[in-house]
Design a protein around this nucleic acid. Sequence first.
DNA 1: ATCTTCACG
DNA 2: ACGTACGTGAAGATA
Length: 890
Amino acid sequence: MGENKKLLLIDGNSVAFRAFFALHQSLDRFVNHNGLHTNAVYGFKTMLDNIITSVEPTHVLVAFDAGKKTFRNKKYADYKGGRAKTPTELSEQFPYVKKLLEAYGMKYYELQNYEADDIIGTLAKQAEEQDFETTIVTGDRDLTQLTTTKTMVAVTQKGVTEVERYTPEHVEEKYGLKPAQIVDMKGLVGDSSDNYPGVTKVGEKTAIKLLKQFKSVEGIYANIDELKKSKMKEHLVADKDVAFMCKDLAQIKRDVPLEITLTDTTWKGSNEKELIAFFQEMDFKRFLEKLRATTPEAKTAQVIEQIKFVNLTADKLAEIDFSNPKEVVFYLEMLGDNYHKAPLVGFAFKIEGKYYVARNTDLLREPKLRALLENENVVVDLFDGKRTFVGLNRLGIHLANIGFDLLLISYLLDTSDNSNDLGKLARQHNYDQVLEDEQVYGKGVKVKIPEDDTLYYSHLCNKVRTIQALRKTLLEGLAKNRQEELYDKIERPLSLVLAEMEIDGITVDPQKLEEMGSEFKERISEIKEMIYQEAGEKFNLNSPKQLGVILFDKMKLPVIKKTKTGYSTAVSVLEKLRGMAPIIDNILKYRQIAKIQSTYIEGLLKVIFEKDSKVHTRYTQTLTATGRLSSVDPNLQNIPVRLAEGKKIRQAFVPRKKGWQIFSSDYSQIELRVLAHISHDDNMQAAFREGQDIHANTAMNIFELASPEEVTSNMRRQAKAVNFGIVYGISDYGLAQNIGITRKQAKEFIEKYFRIFPGVKKYMKDIVEKARVDGYVETLFKRRRYLPDIKSRNYNIRSFAERTAMNTPIQGSAADIIKVAMINMQKMLKEKNLKARMLLQVHDELIFEAPNEEIPILEEIVPQVMDAAVSLDIPLKVESSFGKTWFDAK
DNA sequence: ATCTTCACG
DNA sequence: ACGTACGTGAAGATA
């Protein structure tokens, strides 16, 4: 029986200290939702996992120091004196380290008047007598004195994951001493962190030499006369009392009157449920996921209270009377991301306290249910209103009144944590009575709806319950942030506007794409041939790695930039190599056309819906950190426009009917106008009020010109880059890179800029300061972005957060403005009974299709509505155009 | 899954 | 001294 007993003893304080300082540089990133620092807990946990894996203990005890004073202070009042106070960021974590241990099912112990060392020493001795194999983990090398053939001491290295294992052999090898002599060495050398001095001028080297000769402190003094006359001898004689006292202090006690026995330290493993709860409290998301993924028991360990539900059928529906419901919580399930075509596989709802659930979504078309969803007086709470609206629309049902949208509100509360999975998101709000879809449906190619009714129906009902459970807290959060208006007046109505735009889709002419495709295909193979000729071999042109070998190894062209994995072959690099070899121009041309071909011709063709020859993008409303939309499947916000070849793609985007036009309006320099508004900069505001060309104006100022006529196109181009730089949170380096000037020149530009626009300079300073104080920045409409990195000690991380602080209110407010315009625009089109449809949003422009006869109306009302979206200190400016394709609307 | 590149505002 | 512009999505290669 004896040979299997393995005891693990951990010096809790020492390991927590090590963990804390090992992760000190990322202190700011380890903060949970309650503002608690968690780096030491995290490091401690990592250490525990490692040591458990390697030791596989049967018994565990974690010892802590109890209070400040111990018996050693009676012997030496200054023991551990002059120590810097434990940082509060660490001391606040000790209770949670203990909580972690409880979840791990590990005993911990502390005893007044003794240090953790002494508890460990005592138990190690007992373990020795009872034939345990013992491992001691600590950050303190003093404990190596406890090393024996049956007791190994693992001392944490720089981090906490690596340890140095001390066996008697290793001690011998490292110091040339027996473990028991470590105390003698301490007595001679002293310990600055424990604040006892040792013998003057005796360090580790001298101490070891002496101990090799005389075995112990006692031995040294018994034979002190044998030593030759030396300064060292004088010190030894003078500090004799000190040496004995220090040895005594360093000696770990092995007979502490413990109230626990080794039997009490028996370890039976961790409590999964408690661990999950604990990780949730700490916001240890990766550990949580790992736990769920790797331990099958974890799934069952998470107790989810079973919901009683009615499995709805047409027959049962007939018996139910939804007398006069005011409110319903509803969830529609689809299998797949693309809700324009994903199979509708089930639904669940709660009404008047009861849950109903079914697989067959056709039931929703039954008059009773349809009436419920289409009733304007019934508020429907849900998760992802846009998705639900589009899904129901496919059943011919028009969802009338959305109340609480869990996904949308969760995003508004914190734009940076934006999961689209209900279960994942619920856990972020500390609610765990629902699984993630991946856990129920699987992932990758194996995704499927469970055949087991109870399992599946419970999951759907759990989702409904989650929506209801989180409603109150999240709405309170919204109120606390004063974001009710942002939700009620902007995001919620916008979700429906977007739904309609997505459902409408935009017509794409596949023949046109095919036509262009075959043309590009020919050119690609021509250029390819030329490149292979010049390279002298064939290779995969799409591989930056292989291209790098050709250019930099074979052709010996100069390396301009490297990436993590090798040579960079990006455009900026190739441009610098231009003229050195004709191959470069061909590569650039190849890249340009290959991109158009693969992404925009082939890519777009793949996503055209057969039945209507349209593409139906999805706008992600809850993704970007700034409040912008994004567009996927296909992305219609990055259709080429800058270069002539790519721009042709736009010829394939056509109106849905003959005799219709594509109409487009865009905000001119909206971000700079927003900046002029929020910075209150007089000069910038004046420039906009006077309707000046802002970039030319900037050029005049930074180049100190007397009149606008002196502004050359190059000056204007550079000034424009400066303006962009300002919006992005300027740095001299970035600007220099961008316009190919020296960093010094860039710096001068920026300084001049700030002299001309002092209000802007002040804004930049103030907003960074605000972010530091509040922890977040806001847009005009109170959209919020948290910036914890702004306090980072890491220059790069902090600088990035500072630029973000400057940029987000600008980019985000511009996003707010166009969102308002979209809502008003859609309303206007309906009120005026126009056939025109709003189809696309590309950050600062709106794209419509309309019959010819409505074009003059749009020309009037679209700019009007966009203009009036918000009232700033300065006017907004909107420019419009139209044509028979998107290409022609320029 | 991650990296690199490149399309857009 | 540090080493970047802000915000996105898609394709293809490579591990």
